[in-house]
């Protein structure tokens, strides 16, 4: 049972979280080619090792960025996605 650090609530059990997406994907708008839309929806880098991912903490509802290692399961950092005000 991994422990993930929500930037707002602190370390919580992994069952309180839901994986949202790989970080860095931008939704293509307008009439993009079929392949580009398909890649956006279904293709993942799925890295072996360091990864940047967007997770949602279901308890507080916040989506945030987490940097972790998919091999060692070490969590490097987590940070809010909200723009600095």
């Amino acid at each position: 049972m991994q422990l993930f650090p929500c930037p707002f609530c602190g370390p919580r059990a992994e069952t309180e979280f839901s994986f949202a997406a790989e970080a860095g994907k931008t939704r293509p708008e307008g009439d993009v080619p079929d392949l580009a839309w398909s890649r956006y929806l279904y293709s993942e880098t799925n890295p072996r090792g360091p990864a940047r991912e967007i997770w949602s903490h279901l308890t507080c509802g916040e989506f945030f960025l987490m940097e972790r290692d998919t091999l060692t399961h070490v969590v490097k950092s987590s940070s809010s996605l909200r723009a600095a005000s």
Binding site: S18, A20, R27, S56, G61, E62, F63, L81, R82
Partner: peptide, 14 residues
């Protein structure tokens, strides 16, 4: 509720 919340944070000004 989850998808509304996701788009709220991802695409709009929360």
């Amino acid at each position: 509720a989850a998808r509304l919340e996701q788009w709220r944070q991802d695409r709009f000004d929360s």
